[in-house]
Design a protein around this nucleic acid. Structure first.
Lengths: 237, 237
DNA sequence: ATATTACCAACCGACGGTCGGTACATACCA
DNA sequence: TGGTATGTACCGACCGTCGGTTGGTAATAT
């Protein structure tokens, strides 16, 4: 038997399947054999498309970063919006996306939870910081010009804010994983989020309360995640 | 042949040797076989002391965090000092340590440079944040009481500041690794450091310029690192 | 003498990756 | 229209190495 497919189609098939498995079981714990079995092809086919297993991981991270960019591009490029409106718009868009893809987000939280996925996480964070920082820096510069922000070094600050966001998400997810059935954890998580927002406001020198980075939809995702985790007591191995 | 050593002594031997190899070649790229060969013992001996390879990594991270704590403890516990003095004292001590152990620091920068060491990095960061955050939170509370700081949630903010520091160091090290022989890179690194300090000042609500987190000794370490990197063009395989 | 600890080294299954070869699509020539 | 040449998608047995296991032995303590 010998099924032949279009190059891009097959490649996407590998990428999608691998992403699913990585989210499920982690990068290290997902073998190339598992991937080719899931796709239904041979080992040779895999190495026809990717030089190494890590190469696939890289392409995955790049793709994710691209998609994240595409999500916020319309807001970032809108000349009508003020810097603060752009920031709020960016977060509103990503929050809406998170709410729309609740299950994916809860699963993705797991990736960020476990150190198992440290490599996957590092790659994804780096790629998305690199992709997003320039646009964010431009927003900061605009904010300075508008008098709404006081950012002395937009580029460095943009990277810093994004890295900080990744750290917060990481700690966030860790809490999600560590709890067993603590109903108050959701509030604690939202508190962490608050601290992050206030910190960003202070870093940028914007008025307190002007950044609206959390909305009801994100809150509901958090609650859904905590409830999901609370329900299943020890379903894992 | 059968060499018997004291438990703690042999264990420390494993830890030290493994640390050296991890710093040199990375965690994943250092096999258990390489470790036992370097120590000069059998595989059974290794697994007599550590349940898994990751277990060793954990103990390594814990030990590093402990050492970092011990370094700053005298300052943190000094009742004579103000909160800001404590912070400056903590950094001064760690900077002095870095200056004293220049080579180790340059090597350590490599660990933070490459994604190869993502797991090692994640573990070390997590451990040291966990170990340091409570003390830092107490300093923040003290700063609030003294009227020098405005930190609404000391514990969460402490964790955030430490995570941010780790991110900055990470980006820092990446730059060190990416350059080939750019003499201006040192200035760029110090600028990043400046942005970090100013960000922390803003997050804590302290007066601008009151935090002295960088001194000449750290600057000299940075310069040494950039020069070292600049000299050896492509010695690595 | 016996139990416990410290260590040995052969061995295991699974892993990431390689390689010589095969099925298939397309293009060119008759 | 049929034959053949060429590049590419794919196959699957195989390789060395990995983390980890096991059954045992030498040293020490009781």
């Amino acid at each position: 038997m010998h099924i032949v497919k279009d190059y891009d189609e097959r490649k996407a098939e590998f990428l999608d399947t691998a992403m699913g498995l990585f989210l499920e079981r982690g990068y290290d714990e997902t073998s190339v054999n598992a991937i080719i079995e899931a796709v239904g092809v041979s080992k040779g086919a895999f190495y026809h498309y990717f030089a190494t297993k890590e190469d696939l991981l890289d392409e995955l991270a790049a793709r994710a970063a691209e998609q994240a960019m595409a999500l916020t591009a319309p807001v970032v490029e809108d000349p009508e919006l003020s810097a603060i409106e752009k920031m709020n718009g960016m977060f509103a868009r990503t929050n809406a996306f998170k709410a729309r893809n609740r299950e994916l987000m809860v699963t993705l939280a797991r990736v960020f939870y476990s150190d198992r996925n440290a490599l996957l996480r590092a790659r994804m964070t780096r790629r998305s910081v690199e992709a997003t920082a320039p646009a964010l820096a431009r927003i900061f510069a605009q904010g300075n010009a508008e008098g709404a922000m006081k950012v002395r070094h937009p580029e460095q600050t943009a990277a810093l804010v994004l890295e900080l966001g990744a750290s917060v998400v990481s700690g966030f997810a860790r809490k999600l994983g560590e709890i067993d059935s603590d109903p108050t954890i959701a509030d604690e998580l939202l508190l962490s989020m608050d601290v992050y927002i206030e910190s960003v406001e202070r870093i940028l020198g914007v008025a307190s309360g002007s950044l609206k980075l959390v909305d009801d939809s994100l809150v509901s995702v958090v609650r859904a995640a905590t409830q999901t985790k609370g329900k299943k007591e020890k379903k894992d191995d």
